[in-house]
């Protein structure tokens, strides 16, 4: 009974689950990178305090700027040490080669290039007191739009798969209505209520969807346990990103498991409902 339907629901919802986990993690990573400094303005070592103060005040006045933080040479070195703890590179550093800098965050990251170019004169040279401006993070924007496209494609695939499963459940229900047509005929004749006649088929549809969803959750759980969790561990260790689907503290994965089972049941009930409307006129 409905073996194909159950399998299709399981595969579809499993794919939904995998997409969800991956897309969620990619979004997390991008959000975390986006939250980092967008423009770093490295200052020359010999910059005067007056010029530094003037620059800081000027930058603060720009409407695009959300916040500006001054990082002194000493702070930069501290940061560097923390980031490269235990690495051989620390032993080779003599004195403090790192520059002081302004770290600027923007209200709208799209304007990053526009703002960064204000530190450069017409000939492409940095303005007085500024050594270098780094704003390479605009590629993140592009990554965001790529994931948005990927997400849309994933969503389309999922919708198509869900429609396909609905057609399959619809067909199994239609077949079981056909197989039990004599019983249904007698039921109607002796005055069984519509609900009474329909209930077993609705239940059958629900059961197929629910069971498919359950199988999908088991498959997803196994995939998470043996594969995806390793990827996430690596992300946590290298990028210190906390908000991941499986390892995160917000139990996203549990919500996904429940969601998949509920979606399965709903798909089943909806499809058999359509089949009943079409083939079980009372």
């Amino acid at each position: 009974m409905g073996f194909t339907a159950i399998t299709t629901v399981a595969i579809t919802l499993f794919i939904v689950g995998v997409f969800s986990v991956i897309l969620f993690d990619v979004q997390s990573i991008l959000n975390s990178i986006e939250g980092q400094v967008e423009i770093a303005v490295y200052l020359k070592d010999n910059i005067s305090n007056d010029l530094k103060g003037y620059l800081e005040n000027e930058i603060k006045k720009w409407p695009e700027v959300d916040s500006i933080a001054y990082v002194s040479k000493e702070q930069a070195l501290e940061k560097f040490k923390v980031q490269n703890e235990g690495s051989d590179i620390l032993k080779e550093i003599q004195g403090n080669p790192l520059p002081a800098s302004f770290e600027i965050k923007l209200k709208d990251p799209q304007k990053v290039e526009q703002v960064a170019l204000r530190f450069v004169d017409k000939d492409g040279k940095s303005i007085d007191g500024v050594d270098e401006v780094i704003y390479g993070k605009s590629y993140i924007r592009k990554l965001f739009s790529i994931t948005a496209v990927a997400g849309t494609i994933a969503l389309l695939i999922i919708i198509i798969l869900i429609l396909a499963t609905m057609v399959l459940i619809y067909n199994t229900i239609r077949l079981s209505i056909y197989a039990r047509r004599k019983e249904i005929e007698v039921m109607k004749l002796v005055g069984a209520t519509n609900g009474y006649v329909r209930a077993p088929f609705l239940f059958e549809g629900f059961f197929e969807g629910f069971l498919g969803g359950g199988i999908a959750v088991v498959l997803l759980y196994l995939l998470n346990k043996f594969l995806l969790i390793k990827g996430e561990t690596a992300i946590v260790e290298t990028m210190h990103i906390k908000n991941l689907a499986i390892l995160g503290s917000s139990n996203i994965i549990l919500i996904a498991y429940f969601g998949i089972i509920i979606i399965g049941g709903l798909i089943g009930i909806l499809s058999s409902g359509f089949a009943l409307r079409r083939y079980l006129k009372v």
């Binding site: 004599k182 019983e183 005929e185 007698v186 109607k188 004749l189 002796v190 005055g191 069984a192 209520t193 519509n194 009372v282």
Partner: peptide, 22 residues
């Protein structure tokens, strides 16, 4: 109303040429 049709049918017994037994 269609929800009341079963009630009507409970008051009318039907028999057929082909019996319609299961």
């Amino acid at each position: 109303k269609s929800s009341k049709i079963p009630q009507l049918r409970r008051n009318i017994g039907c028999i057929f040429q082909d019996y319609k037994l299961l």
